[in-house]
Each structure stands twice: as structure tokens, then as C-alpha cells.
């Protein structure tokens, strides 16, 4: 049986670990609230943009117009954007993304991957580490995006991706990230970023929704479309990043909550063991004293 002093030290160390995990949980909860606020802030903009798009398409009558972001070319080169985080200790958050990317490479994009025509852009240090551990080559990394995340920096990245697509560098760009459902639930999604499919979705909406299409348009429909479509793409990208950030904090909060619970359980068990050991030592001592006294009285 371990000696009493050792056990006492063990209990102290588990307790301090518990304190750390509890503090991390609190921090994540605060950060989660901030991240959630950012998602809420983007909604009026995204919603209005969508409304305008629906109205314009209703006015056009069809989604057939020249749009360099919607061209379905023969897919030759693919870019997968894996959005993870810079920090760990958040449960399966990062490894899920890594696993999904691996799965994509081995199933859907199998033939492209063998030919070496799939590139990976990893946003988040942990994603890079995870992919490297699986011997998957990461073409480009972008960790700075999370430092003081704002729309402008995300916009630049989105524009780069859009340029790469319209220049023909890639024929398809996918986003892999954790979508935020609530603090405890994240949904891993693979989203096709380019070529855009929003047109088809909007077309469906414009058939069912009541719309108003008697607008004065300045300068004209096509010009307005040309400025709105890139905007909505950038918003889509920014939203993915925000979702991922909120998911990260949610995942970490849950992970740290579980860690704190586990530590409590461990401490309880250790205390029980410690008390048993202490009691048996005392019993032993009493026995010794009694038998010693008996021998003297003999």
C-alpha cells in the first residue's frame, strides 16, 4: 500500500489540476459568449444581402448570367480549406476536421489525391500538426487569421481564394469546419465554397418567398450582381470562420467541464483510499500498544 504522505501529495496535485481545468472552463465560457455575439452581429448583414439577392434574381427571372464564380469547369485541381484552431485541449474538435480531410482524400477525391492535384490550406496550427501526423502534405498555412479576428482579414483570405478560382488555379474549393449548433454540439461540415451554388439555393427561395421586384436599379442588375456575389461569398467564408471559433470555445468548455468532473471523481476515490489507509495504520498502532501493555501487565 502506498504510504500516506505519497497519497496526500497525489490528492493535492489532482486538486490543483482540477483548479486549472475549472479556470479554463470559465475562460472558454466567456470567450464563447463573445464568439456567439460575433455570429449574431453578422446576421442582419447576411440576411439583408440574401434578401437583395433573392429580389434581384426574381427580377432577372433566371440565374443564367455570366458569373465567374459559378463556372463549372472540368475539375482538375481541388483545394481543401481545413479550419481548425491554434490551441488544443478542446476534445475532438481538431481531430474531427483532420479525420474528415483524410476521409475526403481517400474516398471522394481519391483519384485526384493520387495524382497530387489536391492542395490543402490549413487554418489553425492544430490542424497542421494533425495532418502532418497522418503524413498528409499541407500546401499552405494561415494561423494569423485567428489573432484579433475581424472581417477585413477574413475578407482578404476569401478574396485570395476567389482569385485562385477565377484564375483557374483551382476548379473547386471546399471548406471543412465545425459548424456551431450550441455550446455542447458542433456539427462537422464539408461545404462547397466555389463554384458557388448559392444561386440554385436562392432560386428555390425566390420561388416560394413573396418578393418585391419593382426596384429602380442603379447602375443595372448585372452590375449589382457582380458586386453582391463576391460580398455574399466573403460573408459565407467569414461566417465559417466565426462558426469554427465559437465551436472551438464550446468544445473546449465541454472538454474542460468533463475534465473537472473526472478530477472530482478521482479526488473522491483517492480520499477514500487515503482514509482507509490512515485507519488501518491507526488500528495497527492501537493493537501494538494494547498488546505491549498486556505483555507488561502479564
Amino acid at each position: 500500500m502506498a504510504n500516506l504522505k505519497e497519497m496526500r501529495l497525489r490528492i493535492v496535485s489532482v486538486k490543483s489540476t482540477q483548479q486549472v481545468t475549472r479556470a479554463m472552463k470559465m475562460v472558454s465560457a466567456a470567450k464563447l459568449r463573445k464568439a456567439q455575439d460575433a455570429i449574431i452581429q453578422i446576421r442582419p448583414y447576411a440576411g439583408k444581402l440574401h434578401d437583395i439577392l433573392v429580389n434581384l434574381i426574381a427580377q432577372l427571372g433566371s440565374a443564367d448570367f455570366e458569373n465567374k464564380y459559378a463556372e463549372h469547369k472540368d475539375t482538375k485541381r481541388i483545394l481543401i480549406v481545413a479550419i481548425t484552431s491554434n490551441r488544443g485541449l478542446c476534445g475532438g474538435f481538431n481531430s474531427n476536421v483532420v479525420k474528415k480531410v483524410e476521409e475526403l482524400l481517400l474516398t471522394n477525391y481519391d483519384s485526384y489525391y493520387k495524382r497530387g492535384s489536391v492542395d490543402i490550406l490549413a487554418i489553425g496550427k492544430k490542424g497542421v500538426d494533425g495532418l502532418k501526423a497522418k503524413n498528409i502534405q499541407v500546401t499552405k498555412t494561415l494561423h494569423k487569421l485567428f489573432e484579433g479576428l475581424e472581417y477585413r482579414s477574413a475578407e482578404v483570405v476569401a478574396q485570395d481564394l476567389m482569385n485562385a478560382f477565377s484564375d483557374g488555379e483551382y476548379d473547386r474549393i471546399d471548406l471543412v469546419y465545425n459548424q456551431f449548433k450550441n455550446a455542447a454540439v458542433q456539427k462537422l461540415v464539408v461545404e462547397q465554397f466555389l463554384p458557388v451554388e448559392i444561386m440554385e439555393k436562392v432560386m428555390e427561395d425566390s420561388e416560394t418567398h413573396h418578393y418585391f421586384s419593382d426596384y429602380i436599379l442603379e447602375p443595372n442588375v448585372l452590375e449589382i450582381m457582380k458586386t453582391i456575389i463576391p460580398k455574399s461569398l466573403k460573408i459565407q467564408f467569414f461566417k465559417s470562420i466565426l462558426d469554427s471559433v465559437a465551436s472551438e470555445h464550446g468544445a473546449r468548455m465541454t472538454a474542460m467541464h468533463k475534465a473537472t468532473d473526472n478530477a472530482s471523481e478521482l479526488i473522491r476515490d483517492l480520499h477514500l483510499q487515503y482514509n482507509k489507509a490512515r485507519q488501518s495504520t491507526i488500528t495497527g498502532e492501537i493493537l501494538e500498544i494494547v498488546s505491549g501493555a498486556n505483555a507488561l501487565n502479564g
Binding site: N55, L56, D214, Y215, I216, L217, E218, P219, E223, I224
Partner: peptide
């Protein structure tokens, strides 16, 4: 530049 006053007709502009 253009100005919008109350009861302007519906419009969309860049």
C-alpha cells in the same frame, strides 16, 4: 452622390 428623402421609390444601388 444622391440623396434619399422620405417616401422614395424602391431602389437598389451599389
Amino acid at each position: 452622390y444622391f440623396e434619399v428623402l422620405t417616401n422614395h421609390s424602391p431602389m437598389i444601388s451599389t
